[in-house]
Design a protein around this nucleic acid. Structure first.
Lengths: 260, 260
DNA sequence: TATATCGTCCAACAATATTGAACAGACAGG
DNA sequence: CCTGTCTGTTCAATATTGTTGGACGATATA
């Protein structure tokens, strides 16, 4: 198997674990696969793929269904427990549900990890536009309301770091692709206390976000947002209804998380 | 450990992968830990724990926050994607949401894997009793409505197999702890087409479930249920409102999943 | 200042992952 | 019915790789 490292890391790590996870990640993309298929895809010997699959199957993280291997629900369990352990989730979930109900828009809990925005939780209203984003989705920060408001909690230098690592790809013509512009907007967000994303990731969709300042270790890493069709997010409605509502909910969440 | 189904034999598996996952599972329980702490807990050398943690950290599955290691949201991502790929989830989610809304009770999507019931999705109504079960929860089948209705889809012999592997632990005094009784109930469920769970797992909670017969590979592995406080689940309401509603939703889901 | 505990690093050794080749079973087409 | 080509699986050889105790500096505690 590939042996030469790029030398960037401190080097000596456990290879087998690395291999296992690249196989897991590839399997997720393939949804299901056979031994030979996976081996060919990853350009490794059949026998190698086989031992790994059998190991993972024995551990319960991979299952074989009608002759095909696939990732098991054990990953859902693990992910669910990881989320379950985060105080922000416990404190914010029902509040975001309520927020979505009263506004009739999509409510989300976002978190920053590794310079990316994680979709911790999402509630959709009855007739809501379902973009069907999977729970746990990682995405760049600069083109989501949650991401921008969380970036604004960091110093300019830290923002530069994030951009260095992940770049500023464009999704629509409104996406911020210039670092200076991003820093300028971050400054604005800092004084405003909230962020607006206007068709910067998905055309037709607008959203607003405020940070959650819990006292715990998650401090400065969480935010909540409301999102919906642009035509429903007039400046008036945002300023008079959505933003006050969002801030109110954020306060409740902060109080609850202090209870811990 | 008990093994050998059909001479699945050698048992020669990759140790490092096994170690990695026992560490991951332990870390989930500890929520966060240091190197020495984890090493002591698992009774392995510090240096061993260290390489594994560093490896997992480099892969992004573990992060270090204020001197403590913890599982990262990458597991939430993985779990979210695994669920996202299952057709039952795509077909049933919004329907179960609607079901919960119209009945005012907790709606769930359940799945069977490895002889256990997996909580794929759960919607809670506004004033619902939140038992706060984490998404992806695995539990024995005999004490949940979903579990029992899915058991009933199997032959008696298969049910025996499941009981052999996981036993019939008791949660309340109503839990079925006798195999013959379970088989008898399975037979009844087969003719009825639905299952009822009456304070068999949590005192004060009652629930009903019906299977989802999609045509896909998931066939016979999925079910949906409604659960709530026992006093709201009178025989009348179950028969006249909840069960018809549940069956109706199941039909819609089956139609949608056939669309695939 | 001393003492304990932490995380990190390293090098030597033994253990273990790796791999090609060989085998059996399923399946399709001739 | 045989033949060829796919599977998935097993095994034994080799060297690559994980393992480990001990040493180190940094940090926290007394």
């Amino acid at each position: 198997m590939a042996k030469d490292k790029d030398g960037s890391g401190t080097g000596n790590r456990i290879n087998a674990v690395e291999n296992a996870f690249t196989m897991i990640e590839r399997m997720q993309e393939l949804e299901q696969c056979g031994v030979s298929e996976l081996a060919a895809d990853l350009d490794i010997p059949k026998s190698t793929a086989h031992v790994y699959l059998k190991t993972l199957e024995e551990l319960g993280y991979v299952i074989k269904e009608n002759g095909q291997y696939r990732l098991s629900m054990r990953f859902l369990e693990l992910g669910g427990l990881v989320r379950h352990n985060r105080s922000i989730y416990q404190a914010a979930r029902s509040e975001v549900d309520a927020l979505s109900r009263t506004t009739g828009e999509v409510g989300t809990i976002g978190y920053v990890e590794d310079g990316m925005r994680v979709l911790v939780y999402r509630t959709e209203p009855v007739e809501g536009v379902s973009d069907n984003a999977p729970t746990g989705e990682f995405t760049e920060m600069h083109w989501t309301a949650v991401g921008k408001v969380l970036l604004a909690q960091r110093t300019d230098e830290e923002i530069r770091d994030v951009v260095d690592r992940h770049g500023l790809p464009a999704a629509t013509e409104n996406t911020i692709t210039d670092l200076d512009e991003l820093l300028k907007e971050a400054a604005e967000i800092r004084t405003q206390g909230y962020s607006i994303e206007d068709e910067e990731r998905v055309s037709g969709i607008k959203s607003i976000a405020v940070p959650i300042d819990s006292n715990g270790s998650d401090s400065g890493n969480s935010a909540i947002s409301i999102a919906g069709p642009k035509h429903r997010f007039s400046t008036e409605r945002v300023e008079e209804e959505l933003l006050p509502e969002l801030r109110n909910v954020a306060n409740v969440i902060e109080l609850q998380s202090r209870h811990y």
